[in-house]
Amino acid sequence: MRISVQSEDFDLGAEVKAISGNPKIGAVASFVGLVRDNAMTLEHYPGMTERAIGKIVEEAKSRWQVMDCTVIHRHGALKPNDQIVLVAVASGHRGDAFAACEFIMDYLKTQAPFWKKEQTPEGVRWVEAKTTDDQAAERWTENSRPVAK
């Protein structure tokens, strides 16, 4: 398991390869989030950020078969189309890999202490939290999703 909060960019291919070595692994699901529309600065809470992501990954491991996992989140100044976040999950089968990857992303959106400040044509503003992000995280508590096997 690797969690990194960093200003540097990352290489999806290298990160997937790094968690694919075990011959029991049959699936790696990954997600990469990109900066959309406007340049932005990402602030975070050093220490708590890593801790919060660690707890989310532990929760995912308790729900699905997660054989390895990498979460990278960037901070600092980012421009449109830059990569912001990577979640990659290695598992025996695709169902667990897909579900754990999506779960980690949904929880990261509402639990990890990051804040985006956007440079819009109208000026600089803090991005408002979205209720749709809360709803995306909440659906995992409703058992509305089948646990993939």
Partner: peptide
């Protein structure tokens, strides 16, 4: 103890 707005990462 930390105070902050709802988070907007990811």
């Amino acid at each position: 103890v930390a105070f902050f707005p709802p988070v907007t990462g990811g």
